[in-house]
Structure formats: C-alpha cells, structure tokens
C-alpha cells in the first residue's frame, strides 16, 4: 500500500467528517429552538433569553459553529442540556451496550447470511435454494420493528420464555439480537449467493475441477475469496453502523444503547448529544471503510497493485 493511497484516504476521511458535523450542526439549529422545546410554554421570555445566553444559542451561527469545532479539537463535545454532563460521557457510557447487541446481531447476520447464501448457490435451482431465497424476500419485506413486536408477542407474552425488554442476562439479548441480525442476513445472503454463483460459473472453477482439486478446496480456496468483495462490502456497511446502535430495534426492546439515546436526544433537541453521536457514527464509518478497502486489496491483487490510482 502506497503512502499516497493512505494519505488520499485520510484526506477523504477528514472531509467526510467535516461535512457530517457541519450538516448536522446546521440542520439541528434550523429545525427548532431547543430552549422552547425544553421549557414549559408559559415560561417568561426573560427566562428563555437567559437560557439561550447560558448555552450560547443567542450568538450568530458562524460563531457557535466556530466555538463548537474549536471545542471538539480540545476534546470538548459540549454539554447535554438534559443531563447537564459532558455529551461525550453520556454517549460513551451507552456504547458498550450497543456494541454488545450489535456484535451479537452481526455474528448472527454473518452466519445466517453467508451460510445461507453459500448453501443456496451450491444447491442452485433446488428446493433448498428456493426456500432460502423465499426467506430472504420475507426478511427484506418485513419491517424490523414488526418482527421485533412479533417475537415479543410469541416468546415473551404467549410462551413467556424470554424477557421482552431491558438488559441483564444473556436472555435479554436474544430477542433484540435475532430481530436485528435476521433483518440484514437477508441482504447478505442474496449478495453471497449471486456473487458466488458468478464465480462458480468461471472457467477457472471448471479447470480446478478438471484438475482434480477437491470440492472443499475449490469452494474455500478459490470460489469464496473471489466472491468476497461484494460480501465484504455489505457486511462492512453493517459493521460501520454498529456503534450508532439500532435506532428502531433498541427502543422496541427498551435496550438502553446509543440508538435509543439518539432517538430521545433528537426528540428533546439535545444538540450536543445528537452531534456527538453523529460524529461517532461518522468516525466509525470512516474507519470501517478504510478496513474494507484494505480487505479489498487482500482479496483482489488487481486492486492491491493498482491501489495508488484505481481505488483512491
């Protein structure tokens, strides 16, 4: 990997972050005044003005923005209006829970998605293939929260074998992780199947068979690595979104992760929290994208060798 390649990536990453932060900053301030949102309707105008002044919201937008960016550079991400604590602390203490849920769900996605995709591709045209693809269509078309509510209804309400909400034991993890994991497994399965089928039809796969290369080796050594790029791309997207939590699933299961915090913070116009979460998601996305790019190079020598130009 050339230095130019890395530098180019870093510059792009920085630009992405600046754009994300700026966009959120401006949009949040245009979409409503946090002070009127928080205080009762009959609050005297002078009190509102005091709060505005206290949080610096009375200053011109460019000045607020400059202060905000300067703060970030010093590690100050602002104060949560609601908790009256540094926003970064509030967000970071939620991260482990979101990661716990997200990683479990991702593991499920990978096992079900890639496993199902491989199975469908190898058994192309059979009932196994048709059944797998029918399930992925169902997974695509059923909204996340709906499956969540359905699972709660069955496992928590009707059969009473799993808790419906909250955190604590591994049992609390099962329903939200299944809800979150299966929804994306459908996408991964379809990508895996189609890209694997494409490779399986390549002449070099037939050549390998004609040379007496064993089946397992043909699939694991030649077919899957060649089919890997689309799979890595879709899994990477999911991995990048992990830290931001599950905006829909977390509230459904009362899972106190970043996703739930984000929903609440947006409703409450807790500017610093929303901005910090968006920045956190942007940073994670950038890091994961970089990892995905490196994986591309590992998967495909054509990208590796031309990395200076082709992928920059």
């Amino acid at each position: 990997m050339s230095l130019r390649f890395v530098l180019g990536k870093l510059l792009r990453a920085l630009l992405t972050l600046v754009l994300a932060v700026t966009f959120v900053f401006v949009v949040l301030r245009m979409s409503g005044d946090p002070v009127t949102q928080m205080l009762p309707d009959d609050t005297p105008a002078s009190v509102v003005a005091d709060y505005r002044q206290m949080w610096g919201l009375d200053r011109p937008l460019p000045e607020q923005y400059a202060r905000y960016v300067a703060g970030i550079l010093h590690g100050d991400f602002g104060f949560s209006f609601r908790d009256d604590r540094p926003a970064l602390d509030v967000v970071l203490e939620r991260v482990p829970l979101s990661l716990e849920l997200g990683l479990t769900a991702l593991a499920l996605t990978i096992v079900l998605g890639i496993g199902g995709g491989i199975l469908a591709a190898l058994k192309r045209g059979t009932s196994v293939d048709h059944a797998t693809m029918a399930m992925t269509i169902m997974g695509h078309s059923m909204p996340n929260f709906f499956l969540g509510i359905l699972l709660i209804l069955l496992f928590a309400m009707t059969w009473r074998i799993l808790p419906s909400s909250g955190v604590g034991t591994w049992k609390h993890l099962i329903l939200p992780a299944v809800t979150l994991g299966t929804s994306y497994a459908a996408t991964v399965a379809r990508f895996t199947r189609s890209s694997l089928l494409e490779v399986l039809n390549q002449p070099f796969m037939r050549t390998a068979r004609a040379k007496g290369v064993p089946f397992r080796r043909r699939i694991l050594g030649h077919a899957l690595p060649n089919a890997g790029i689309p799979i890595v791309t879709v899994v990477g997207l999911r991995l990048g979104a992990l830290i931001g939590g599950a905006v829909v699933v977390e509230p459904v299961f009362a899972w106190p992760g970043v996703g739930q915090l984000l929903v609440n913070a947006v409703a409450f116009r807790d500017l610093a929290i929303v901005q910090t979460i968006v920045l956190l998601i942007a940073v994670t996305m950038v890091v994961v994208n970089f990892m995905v790019d490196i994986t591309y190079g590992w998967l495909d020598p054509r990208i590796r060798v031309d990395s200076g130009e082709a992928t920059a």
Partner: peptide, 19 residues
C-alpha cells in the same frame, strides 16, 4: 485420475484464478 490427463482450454485469462 485427473492428474494423468490435463486440459488446456481456449481462454487462458479465465483459466487462472485472478487472486
């Protein structure tokens, strides 16, 4: 037995694993 009879096909760029 595949070892004893080898095959060379038409398009060499597709007969090799690009990776």
């Amino acid at each position: 037995q595949r070892r004893d009879v080898q095959v060379v096909f038409q398009n060499p760029s597709q007969a090799l694993d690009p990776r």
